[in-house]
Every structure is written in structure tokens, then in C-alpha cells.
Computed example of a mutant assay.
Amino acid sequence: MHRGGRGFGHGHGRGFGGRHRDDDEGRGPRRRMFDSGELRLVLLKLIADEPRHGYDLIRQIEELTSGAYAPSPGVIYPTLTLLGDMGQIEAQQSDGAKKLFAITPEGQVELDASKDVVDALIARLTAFGEERQRTDSASVRRAMGNLKQVLLNRLGQRDLDDATLHAVVALIDEAAQKIERL
């Protein structure tokens, strides 16, 4: 089960209400959640906080984003392999088949050298989650869906004249202005 975020991000993600896609309902591609090397630093930080399994890392990122984004195992595990190859993490003995990863002294040096970047990344994930919480209420989604359906039905009618179309546009603009002023 993968959850994640609309907004920005690749991987298996669900956004502010639905499954993440690169082309979300025709509005164009979204920004990637992590640029080159950023996921590696986030994982290193989370592992430095406490040794973790791969799935725990996915859940922790999902928690930071309030469920808006969760990287796929296909992104997490190769990054963990890279961190291991770089000598920045190592697998520890663990109960069961899951590997428990811990930071190495080399990894701590890298993390310390990248502290400002890491802090900004964690802040970005947290802000992303806070944004989701503000915009993902069920009543707002219901109202937006209702408006969308009414618009599709009304605008799809063949007898729609220019005056009615302009009236619809004016109502939408008025609603947007009133919401903005709240």
C-alpha cells in the first residue's frame, strides 16, 4: 500500500486527495518531491534519528507529509543500497528478515556537512503535510466535486448561450474573490 502526494513528487503517491500522477487531470507535470541527492539526505537524517527498516522510512516520510506523499520501495531501497555502498549506513542485526539500517561515522560527517540542506528538506516535507491538512478536508473536496459536476453538466448542454456562459464565469470569479477575502 503506497500513499503519497499530489503537489510534487514521483513515486507512488497520493496527493491532496487522490493518487499522484505526473499529469494530474491534464494540468501538467508536477515538481518532483526530491531533487537529485535530496532523498539520500532525508533518509540519512531519519536513520541518524534512530535505526530504521526500509518500510519504516517510507512510513516516516508519509507521516512528515501527513499522508500526502510516500516514496515507493522502488525508490527507497536503491537509495539505501547507495548509502550503504557509500559507507554512510550499515545494516545491523535485526529480528526477522528485515534489515535495520544505522548511520556510520562517515554518514554522520555527511549529515553534519549538509545540516542546512537537511533542515530545509525536513521543513519542506512538514510544510507540505501542513498544506495538505489545510486543503484536504472532506467538506472542501465534496464542495469542489459538486461544483465540478454541476459545471460539466451545465456547460455540456447544447442550448448554452454566451450570456449564460458569462454568468457562470462571473459566479465562479465572485466565489473565488469572496473566498480570497475570508
Rank of each mutant, 00 (worst) to 15 (best):
I122R: 07
G54Y: 06
G84F: 00
Q92D: 02
V75L: 14
F128Q: 01
I172C: 13
T81D: 15
L171Q: 15
S66R: 13
G74A: 14
R124H: 00
P51T: 04
Q93W: 07
L121E: 09
G84K: 11
R158S: 14
A68L: 10
T65F: 07
Q149H: 06
K115V: 07
D161G: 05
L100K: 08
T104E: 04
L80C: 09
D162P: 02
L151R: 00
E106T: 06
D116M: 03
R124L: 01
R124C: 00
D49P: 01
I47W: 03
H166C: 03
K148E: 13
L121Q: 02
K98W: 03
I172L: 14
E110A: 05
D161K: 00
S94C: 07
I61H: 05
R142Y: 06
A163W: 02
E106D: 14
A91V: 13
L165R: 13
G156T: 01
L121C: 01
L152H: 09
T104H: 12
S66C: 06
L121R: 09
P78K: 12
D112W: 03
T79C: 06
T79D: 08
I76K: 03
A113P: 13
I89S: 02
G156I: 04
I76L: 07
S137R: 12
L171E: 10
L80A: 13
D95C: 08
T126Q: 07
D159I: 15
R134A: 15
T135S: 08
G87E: 04
L147N: 09
P73Y: 13
Q108F: 08
A127R: 13
F128Y: 14
L151F: 14
A170I: 03
L83W: 05
Q88V: 07
E106H: 10
E63I: 02
Q93P: 10
Q60H: 12
P78T: 15
H53D: 04
L155V: 08
R154N: 10
T65P: 11
Q149E: 13
P78E: 15
D112L: 05
Q149V: 00
Y77W: 07
P71F: 01
D95P: 10
L155W: 04
L165Y: 08
D162C: 08
P73L: 11
A70D: 00
Q92I: 00
A97S: 15
G54M: 06
N153E: 15
G96V: 01
P51D: 05
L83S: 11
S72I: 11
R132I: 05
Q88K: 12
I58W: 01
G87P: 07
V140A: 15
F101W: 12
K148Q: 11
R158Y: 14
L64S: 01
E174G: 06
R154I: 15
G87L: 07
A102R: 02
L44Q: 08
V109N: 05
S66I: 07
K98C: 09
L147M: 15
R52G: 05
R59G: 09
A175M: 13
K115D: 10
V168N: 01
Q133D: 15
P71Q: 10
L46N: 08
L125Q: 05
A167Q: 15
S66H: 10
A48F: 12
T164F: 03
S139Q: 12
R154W: 08
L125Y: 12
K148I: 07
E130Q: 10
L165S: 02
R158N: 08
R158T: 11
R141A: 14
R142N: 06
F101L: 00
K148A: 12
L83M: 04
L57I: 14
V150T: 10
